[in-house]
Design a protein around this nucleic acid. Structure first.
Lengths: 209, 209
DNA sequence: TGACAAACGGAACAACGTTCCGCATAACTG
DNA sequence: CAGTTATGCGGAACGTTGTTCCGTTTGTCA
């Protein structure tokens, strides 16, 4: 069980290949930020200083490139969840992180769009979301539930997808609706074992007119 | 104020033009159902038995055709809201219609996708949604609030957009999340003036594991 | 250094949205 | 009913995009 990552005498990756791959990911990230995920592949190739063929060898389909860039950012958000869990109290850690996550998705315009496009290249993305962000959110939920702040019957992945879907280009709107979801979570909270702030809608959702 | 719809001696629309327009809308609806909103324009033109030029005269941009088809269906859903308001009690009318609306959006795969694409041709669609479905939902909310079943501080259009965004291809998931939203609505409900069912999460959201 | 596979670049292809314009024809006129 | 006109029609043609293909370059190892 020692050589799980065996390479069995296969040649190591060429240096230029790795260099181009990095350049591609970086260029793609920049272009996606600037022009959205529908930006032409040629534009990315040019920005990365490589040919079209190079792009398609590393990423057989256009969306594979999008997915690769996305995965990177997902990892960052997952890390943020773990950090919030350490730095803040349960309910605040949860709401704070959900706000951050909402902002994250809202920023990546067209990304959620691409996710829902039904393209097979994205079939694995929800799973990736769930595997990486899910556990982090699950612990946030668990801690909040243990504190009696929210109900216990909510599946992290369900909530994750819901927030993702809620996020539109209008961030203020997204935040209000997520706040409403949070109140939905608190609705069924069992009798609090610990101190429980006066029962009232969250600050944000209060701003609803 | 009699001749608001004046035509001032302009020729009436040609019969074949009207015929082709109807055929186009019908063909587009069928194709969108079968292949999604990304179906090629040529396919629709062929199915409608018209040339490409005809399509683009009636609908200058591809998305104008999508929007036209969408508007038709929106009208139908708005009508359903008014009917629910008449046939059912306030809270049930609201939840029942939201369920139907969720199903509606979930069915139109790729439609929400197109809406969020940021294309200028869709700029007016949210407004259309709000103008036609908004008032209907507003009365549903108002009646439920009057009955003390839900809080009063929720904007119909906010909720409408939220539900639209929530609807993904997985209808079961969408329904659960909408149920959660509904519980969010009920969270801040003021003291009930009338009979109030025992305070508990809605049936649907109970099924969350 | 020489040989070989890995990786490269960009021309070429197919599919799509959209434009354009010569031709057909419905609607009016006498 | 025949003539006139503007409205509407069809589909070839253009530009952009995703993707494929293959001759050429280049890193790696003996």
């Amino acid at each position: 069980m020692a050589k799980v990552k065996s390479k069995v005498a296969t040649r190591p990756k060429r240096a230029d290949a790795q260099r181009n791959l990095d350049a591609l990911l970086e260029a793609a990230k920049a272009v996606f930020m600037a022009s959205g995920v529908d930006a032409p592949v040629r534009e990315i190739a040019t920005k990365a200083g490589v040919g079209l063929g190079t792009v398609y060898r590393h990423f057989p389909q256009r969306y594979d490139l999008v997915a690769a860039v996305l995965r990177r950012e997902v990892d960052a958000v997952a890390a943020a969840a773990r950090k919030a869990s350490e730095d803040l109290e349960p309910l605040e850690a949860l709401t704070s992180w959900l706000r951050r996550f909402t902002r994250f998705v809202a920023t990546k315009r067209g990304l959620a769009t691409a996710l829902h496009s039904g393209d097979p290249a994205f079939a694995s993305m929800p799973a990736y979301f769930e595997e990486h962000v899910g556990p982090a959110l699950k612990s946030l939920l668990g801690e909040a539930a243990a504190a009696g702040a929210i109900r216990r019957d909510v599946d992290p992945n369900d909530l994750l997808r819901a927030v993702s879907n809620l996020s539109s280009s209008d961030e203020a709107h997204s935040q209000r609706m997520v706040a409403l979801l949070i109140d939905g979570l608190r609705f069924g909270a069992s009798a609090a074992p610990a101190t429980r702030s006066k029962e009232s809608p969250s600050d944000i959702s209060r701003k609803l007119v």
